[in-house]
Each structure stands twice: as structure tokens, then as C-alpha cells.
Amino acid sequence: MFAIARLSIRCSAVLLGLLLASPVMAQTDRLYPHGGEVVLGKIKSISKNGIVMTVSGKDQTFNAGTIEKVLFQGDPGELTQGREFAIDNQFDQAIAELKTVDASKLNREPQKADFAYYVMYCQAQQALSGNGDLRSAASTALGFIQQNTDSWHFYDTAKLLGDLAVKLGSYDQASKYYGSLRSAPSTETKIESLYLNALVKLAQNKDSEAASDLQKIVGLGVQSSEGARLQTLAKAALAIATAKQGKGKEALEMVNELIAKLNPTDTETAAEIYNAQGASYVAMGDTEGALLAYLHTQLMFSTHPGPHSEALKQLAELWTKVGKPDRAAEARSELQQRYPGLSG
């Protein structure tokens, strides 16, 4: 019996030693690709173009635009939870959690950069939704990108800077930041660069130029779900550009095709499509149709500040046109209460 027990102990010890020496146990960092399984390994290097990770003794490269998040070995719980809140667009909760992180105990440079990014990201998103200072957020984002030129968050931050510049009316700056996305390794990010710059042209009433760029996106043979989503958004924006050029009926036909193929899980894209429908009806002089379209966004897609605030602005004008000042006042009041920084 004693011999068997000793043998069992020795076998257990050998097994434990093998496990501790195995690549699985040595894998400490976790990388989550968009739409893929978590990858366990050790981060070898990070640059603005992505991450090289050693997995089971072999290096694997992950492009920046394909990464959802990274969990580093030794992350404090507060950083892990704050990161999750941020990714889930719960920015108030994220900031509250991140404020409890003791930054002095972050002993890896990638951890420090990740922490700084999510603090900056949440502040920027709050400002973009009208609940923060746009100039302060832009300054913080610029500071991050200057101090972390090798962060895999580089292109995401460049996009944020473009978004903030648009809200501030600095369209030349926005074009510069969005233009930098063309250097990203991800095909989808390159498409996004063209799409976002087309939106800048729309905001500047350069409708024919915007339409030309958007048509290029529509004509692409995309190979991914994200590429297809960007193509749908480009079609919605192309409808708006078409409507602004006085072709409301043609724009409406384009939008109705998109509505017939709506992805029920992508509510943000749906909101943009219904706003495009509203713009099409406005171009046709159909106030009632425009009201119904923008009301759809107001009532169904209130979790997306960008299209939701745009719908409220349009509704305030449309209700006034049809002689319902009380409804117009309600729309303005909701706009002011939910998006104080965007109501001007």
C-alpha cells in the first residue's frame, strides 16, 4: 500500500512538472480577435499595425483592425472590468471602474498604455455623445497618440480624433485624421477611411464629391462582415448625398432596398438607414414621410447618440413645419437633456 502511495505521489509530481513546463501553462496573455476564439500566448511585440504573439512556441501576427481586446497577465480586476464596460459602451461605469485602478502597480508598459487608452476612449465617447468637453477630449486623445505611437490602438485613436474634429467643425483636421487610416494594415480600416472622409464632404455640402467616393465603396467586392457593414453604411450615405442633390425619389428607392435587407442585430446601421430615409422624404417635400422616418430612429434606436441626436434635430424642425410647436419643443427638450453638447 505504501509503495503504491509513494508511486502515486511521484507520478503526480511528474505530471505537475510536465504541466508547469508545457506551453499551455506558460501562456499568460489573452488576445481576442473580432469574431474569433481567444488566443493564449505571450505577447512578443506591439506596434501601431498590430501584435505579434508567441503561441505554442510559434509567432503569430494579428493586425490592429482585427483585434477586439487584449488581456495582459497581471491585469488588476478593476482594469479588466473597466475595459469590458468600455467595449460594451457603458462609459460611465467604465470610468468609475478605471478610476479605482492604482496605475503605480501596472508594471508592464502595454498595460499602462491600455489603461491610458480606455480612460481617454471613454472620455472621448462621452464628449461625442454631448456629455463632455470636446476640446478637452481631443487634447487628451492627441496626447495619447503622441505618447503611444507604437500602440495597437493607434488607428482607433486617429479615428476618434477625426470624430472629435467633425463635432468641432474642424473638417480639414478631420480629413487628415481619417486619411491616416489608409495606412492601416486592415482592408476594412482602409475602406472606413474612404467612408469617413466622404461623410466629411457631406458635412461640407460637397455632395457630388461625397457621392463619388461612396460609389467606390459600393462597387467593392468585400470579403468580410465588417466590410459588408461599411458598404451598407456607404449606401445609406450615398442616398443622403443623392437626396441633397435634389433626387429624392431615387434616394428613397435606394434606402427602401436597404430597409428590406436590414440586419436586425445591427441597430446602429439601421438608425443611419432610417435617417437616410428621412432625408430622402425631405428632398421630395414629403414632410409626413420624413417625420415617420425620423420618429422611427427616435423611438427605436435611442442607444446610438449620433443618429439619435440627428433625428431629434430634424424632428424639431419638421414638427414646427406642420404646425405642432409642442411636439417640436419636446424634441428640443430631449435633445438638450440627453445631448447637451450637441444641441446647439
Rank of each mutant, 00 (worst) to 15 (best):
S8G: 12
R10L: 03
L15P: 04
L16C: 14
G17A: 12
Q27H: 08
H34V: 02
I43P: 00
S45T: 12
A64W: 03
G65Q: 07
K69C: 15
V70I: 14
L71M: 01
Q73V: 05
R83Q: 11
I87M: 06
N89F: 00
S104G: 04
K105G: 01
L106G: 10
L106T: 06
F115E: 00
A116Y: 02
A116I: 00
V119S: 01
L128Y: 00
R135A: 15
A138S: 05
A138C: 05
T140K: 03
L142N: 06
Q146W: 05
Q146T: 02
D150V: 09
W152T: 13
L160C: 10
G162H: 15
G162W: 03
A165Y: 13
K167P: 15
L181E: 00
T189N: 04
V200E: 14
S208G: 08
V222R: 11
Q223R: 05
E226Y: 10
A236W: 01
Q245G: 14
G248D: 04
L252A: 12
T265M: 05
T269P: 09
A270V: 11
A271C: 10
E272W: 02
Y274A: 13
A276R: 10
V282H: 14
A283I: 15
D286F: 14
P305W: 12
P307M: 11
L315Q: 08
L318M: 08
L318H: 05
Y339V: 12
